[in-house]
Write a protein that binds this DNA or RNA. Structure first.
Length: 271
DNA sequence: CTAGGGGTAAAT
DNA sequence: ATTTACCCCTAG
C-alpha cells in the first residue's frame, strides 16, 4: 500500500526549494511543469512536493514529529489589542512596520552608487524585498521559505537551528520590555546566548560587502517576523520563538548600525 | 488544484 | 520509537 519508499535526493530537494523560490509556496503543479525542475522532479507528483515541503517546514521549526504534540490546545492571541499575555508583542512592534522600518536602509544602500568600477550591483536587496513581499502575500512567512530563498539565491545557509532544542526560560521571560537594548547599545554585557552569535556574525559583517550584509540583515528580520508569526499560532513555544525573534532583531539592528556607521551613505534617497 | 488533517509503512 | 515518504480524503 505504501509506496516502496524513495528517499528524496539532494537534487530533488534543491529543485523543490528553487521551485518554491521561483514560483512561490504552493505552486506545486507550476514547479513541476517548469522545465527547469521537471528534469529532476519528473518522478514526483504535486502532492509529493506538498508533502515534502510540509516535512521540510516542520523540521525546520524543531517541531519534531509534526504538531502531534499539542494541537488541541490553541489558547492565546486573537486579541492583538492589549492582552495580558506574558510576551507576545511587548518588544519591538512586529509585522510590517518593522520590515518597512528596515527596508529603506537597504534601499538607500542599494541606491548609493559604488565606486564606479565596482562590480555590477546585483541588487540583492531588491530580490530580498521581493521575496519577503511575496512571502507575505502568500501568507507564508516561513523560515523554510526564507531558508530556501537564501540557499538558492546565495550560498548562505540558515543554521539548522538546533539551538532551539534548549528551553531556557530566562531571556524573554525574566526581563520584559526591551531587553534587546542591551544588545544594541552595549556589547560588553552578560548577554544571553544570543550575544555570542550576534557578535560573531557581526564581526563577519564588518568584512562583508554591503549586499551581503543587507542580505543577512534581511534574513534576520525575516526570521524575526516568522518567529513572531509562529508565536501567534503556538503560544506553547512562544518563549523560543520570541527569543529567536529578539536575537534576529538584535542582529538586524546591529547590522544596520554597522552598515550606516561604516559607509555613512550620502542619503541619495530622493532627497 | 491546493491545504491540511489523518493514516500506512519503510527506513533508521 | 522516530523520521520520512506516500497515500487518501475533504473542504475550498
Amino acid at each position: 500500500m505504501g509506496a516502496p519508499k524513495q528517499k528524496w535526493t539532494s537534487e530533488e530537494e534543491a529543485a523543490l526549494k528553487a521551485g518554491v523560490v521561483k514560483h512561490g509556496v504552493g505552486k506545486w503543479r507550476t514547479i513541476l511543469k517548469d522545465p527547469e525542475f521537471s528534469g529532476v522532479l519528473y518522478l514526483r507528483s504535486n502532492v509529493d512536493l506538498k508533502d515534502k515541503w510540509r516535512n521540510l517546514s516542520v523540521m525546520a521549526n524543531g517541531w519534531s514529529s509534526r504538531e502531534k504534540s499539542r494541537l488541541a490546545i490553541r489558547r492565546v492571541h486573537q486579541a492583538p489589542k492589549h492582552d495580558e499575555n506574558p510576551f507576545a508583542v511587548p518588544p519591538f512592534t512586529p509585522s510590517d512596520e518593522d520590515i518597512v522600518d528596515v527596508k529603506p536602509i537597504q534601499v538607500s544602500r542599494e541606491v548609493v552608487p559604488f565606486s564606479g568600477p565596482k562590480r555590477s550591483i546585483v541588487r540583492l536587496d531588491n530580490l530580498i524585498m521581493e521575496a519577503i513581499t511575496t512571502l507575505k502575500e502568500t501568507g507564508g512567512s516561513n523560515k523554510t521559505t526564507i531558508a530556501a530563498f537564501i540557499e538558492v539565491k546565495r550560498r548562505y545557509r540558515i543554521a539548522p537551528t538546533p539551538a532551539y532544542s534548549d528551553r531556557r526560560r530566562s531571556s524573554s521571560l525574566l526581563m520584559d520590555g526591551r531587553q534587546k537594548a542591551s544588545l544594541r547599545g552595549d556589547k560588553e554585557e552578560t548577554n544571553v546566548l544570543t550575544k555570542s552569535q550576534v557578535d560573531l556574525e557581526l564581526a563577519k559583517i564588518r568584512s562583508m560587502s554591503a549586499q551581503e550584509a543587507a542580505a543577512v540583515a534581511a534574513r534576520a528580520v525575516a526570521e524575526a517576523e516568522a518567529a513572531i508569526a509562529e508565536a501567534e499560532e503556538a503560544a506553547r513555544e512562544a518563549e523560543t520563538a520570541e527569543a529567536d525573534a529578539e536575537a534576529a532583531q538584535a542582529f538586524a539592528d546591529a547590522a544596520m548600525k554597522t552598515l550606516k556607521g561604516r559607509n555613512t551613505p550620502k542619503m541619495m534617497i530622493h532627497a
